[in-house]
Amino acid sequence: MRIAIIGTGNVGGDIARGLRGKGHAVTLGARNPDDAEVKALAAETGAGVAFPAEAATRADLVILALPWGVAEGAVKALGDLSDKVVIDCMNPLGRTAAGMGLTIGHTTSGGEMVAGWLPGAQVVKTLNQVGAEIMAQNAHLPHRPVMFMAGDNDAAKAQVAEMLTDLGFEPLDAGDLTKARLLEPFGMVWINQALFRGKGRNWAFAAVEG
């Protein structure tokens, strides 16, 4: 697959590391393709580099790995992505009365908002449920980590499932895109355990059948 990763921070970088050597043509979408850190990431992962809109236009699959606070402007600047498969791996985090947490929920989700910003695109919510490091490397875990996905198009989810498998995850279909309202709080369970309950970042959820 031709995959564009929009955002070259921790999440985007570790997805690129996880996809290295898996047979995909990966392009990093960066505001400054000449940035030294971006060039170093591209050299490490064997990825190409382009401006975000250019990377998205050339891709079969577009992964949004941006801070939520800048997401709307950055996503809209990608242009017309009609019929493209777009992964939203962002959690709508921000400052709330109770501290850092989800800023929306119950009646909508970040995934649904992204779909509104990209009319015609096939948006799939996934890769929001673990830390970036697990996306780069998870073969050491005793169980295969699970990764839920939500979207309205079965063909798009099948394509995303193929990529999730390449990243080492067991993909499970959570249903239509409204189920992002479940997956975003689920991502907060990982964040709470990892960052606030002392579990650390080297773990993931697994679906264990008996």
Rank of each mutant, 00 (worst) to 15 (best):
I3Q: 00
A4V: 10
I6Y: 00
T8D: 01
G9R: 01
D14E: 10
A16G: 07
R17V: 03
G18L: 01
L19V: 04
G21T: 07
G21S: 09
L28I: 12
R31D: 09
D34I: 13
D35S: 15
V38W: 04
K39H: 12
K39L: 14
A40L: 14
A40W: 12
A42T: 11
A42W: 12
A43K: 15
F51C: 15
F51S: 15
A53I: 10
A53T: 13
E54R: 14
T57Q: 13
R58D: 13
A59Q: 06
L61G: 00
L64M: 01
L64D: 07
A65P: 02
L66V: 05
W68E: 08
V70F: 05
A71F: 02
G73V: 15
A74F: 07
V75A: 07
V75C: 03
K76L: 10
K76Y: 06
L81H: 00
V85Y: 00
V86M: 01
C89P: 08
N91G: 09
N91C: 11
L93G: 06
G94R: 03
G94T: 04
R95K: 14
R95V: 12
A98L: 10
G99K: 01
G101V: 06
L102I: 07
G111A: 08
G111P: 02
E112I: 04
E112V: 07
E112P: 09
V114F: 11
G116K: 06
G116C: 05
W117D: 05
G120Q: 08
A121Q: 02
Q122G: 01
V123S: 06
K125E: 04
L127S: 08
N128M: 09
V130K: 08
E133A: 13
I134R: 02
M135L: 09
M135Q: 11
A139D: 10
A139P: 07
H140G: 08
P142H: 02
H143N: 12
R144A: 04
M147Q: 05
F148Y: 12
A150C: 00
A150M: 03
A158L: 00
Q159E: 12
V160T: 10
V160C: 05
V160W: 03
V160P: 03
A161Y: 05
E162D: 11
M163P: 01
M163F: 00
L164N: 01
T165H: 03
L167I: 04
L167P: 00
E170F: 13
P171A: 12
L172S: 08
D176S: 11
L182D: 10
L182K: 08
L182T: 13
E184I: 10
P185V: 14
G187N: 10
W190R: 10
W190S: 13
W190G: 07
W190F: 12
N192S: 15
L195M: 14
L195C: 14
F196H: 14
R197K: 14
R197L: 14
K199M: 14
W203F: 10
A206M: 05
A207E: 09
E209K: 15
E209V: 15
